[in-house]
């Protein structure tokens, strides 16, 4: 990857607080088009705070630094405007909404995107055709679209539904938070290959995880692996760093870095 190109994501000196407490303490991260990065860190290191700050969740305040997506300053944008700018956040615990049919939700999301692109909205039947194609590509069980949004979904089904949304929204950058949590081995493999199928030369990924096992399940090794501790990236390397982590544990690598 040429370093001269504008990165898709550029995070510089990012500090952020939650309820007055500083959680992010100077994050620097640069992801080029088409790259897949993995951010690994122990519980409580601030990984989820980073995803929430990137996505603009209420209650997370940036105190210093900047976040640029394709050169655009995200900090001044609302969560939906960040989505419009090309950011996608795959949730660790996707929300379940009683009474809201998954198809209805997905159609709203897709028609919102089409509207921004100056296209006509899809009626329920036309949308169903589009949806069926995407579902076949993921692949995920079709009956899930007839249920209410994430209601009664297993862990793996929720994650596949996240990837379906990723596929429909076609983001520039997908940040997937703890996508492997709560998955058994088969589900992990399915989700990992579903993620792989979403890769394109233009689209970048930031996978956030606690364990190495998601990386092991990926068909192609990630471009970069970062170790996150005490609110910032303390070490970066290639996929071998994850293996090293698996063998030595967080404590050894983090103290080495310090």
């Amino acid at each position: 990857m040429s370093k001269s190109k504008t990165p898709v994501l550029e995070v510089r000196g990012l500090h952020a607080t939650v309820e007055g407490e500083e959680i992010l303490q100077g994050v620097d991260l640069s992801i080029q088009a088409g790259e897949m990065h993995v951010l690994m860190g122990p519980n409580g290191s601030g990984k989820s705070t980073l995803t929430n700050v990137l996505a603009g969740r209420e209650g997370y305040e940036i105190t210093a630094g900047e976040i640029l997506l394709d050169g655009q300053n995200l900090a001044v944008l609302s969560p939906e405007e960040r989505a419009w700018a090309g950011l996608f956040l795959g949730f660790q615990y996707p929300s379940a909404v009683e009474g809201l049919a998954n198809t209805t939700f997905l159609r709203e999301v897709v028609n919102g995107k089409r509207k921004r692109e100056g296209k006509e909205p899809l009626d329920p039947l036309a949308f169903l055709r589009v949806l069926r194609e995407e579902i076949a590509k993921i692949p995920m069980p079709e009956h899930l679209i007839r249920r209410n949004l994430n209601v009664g979904f297993s862990g793996g089904e929720k994650k596949l539904n996240e990837i379906l949304q990723l596929a429909l929204l076609e983001p520039r950058l997908a940040v997937l938070d703890e996508t492997d949590s709560g998955l058994d081995l088969d589900a992990l493999r399915n989700v990992a290959s579903a993620i792989h199928r979403q890769r394109t030369p233009e689209r970048s990924f930031l996978l956030i995880t606690h364990y190495q096992r998601l990386i092991g399940a990926l068909e192609v090794a990630p471009d970069r692996v970062h170790i996150f501790a005490r609110g910032k990236i303390v070490r970066s390397g290639d996929a071998k760093l994850a293996e090293q982590l698996e063998q030595q544990g967080y404590d050894a690598l983090i103290s080495e870095a310090a």
């Binding site: 989505a83 956040l89 929300s95 939700f105 709203e108």
Partner: peptide, 16 residues
Amino acid sequence: FYCQSRGLSAEQAAGL
């Protein structure tokens, strides 16, 4: 927040 992160406005999200 979940709905907004999918590009829906706060109002649309609340509506759903």
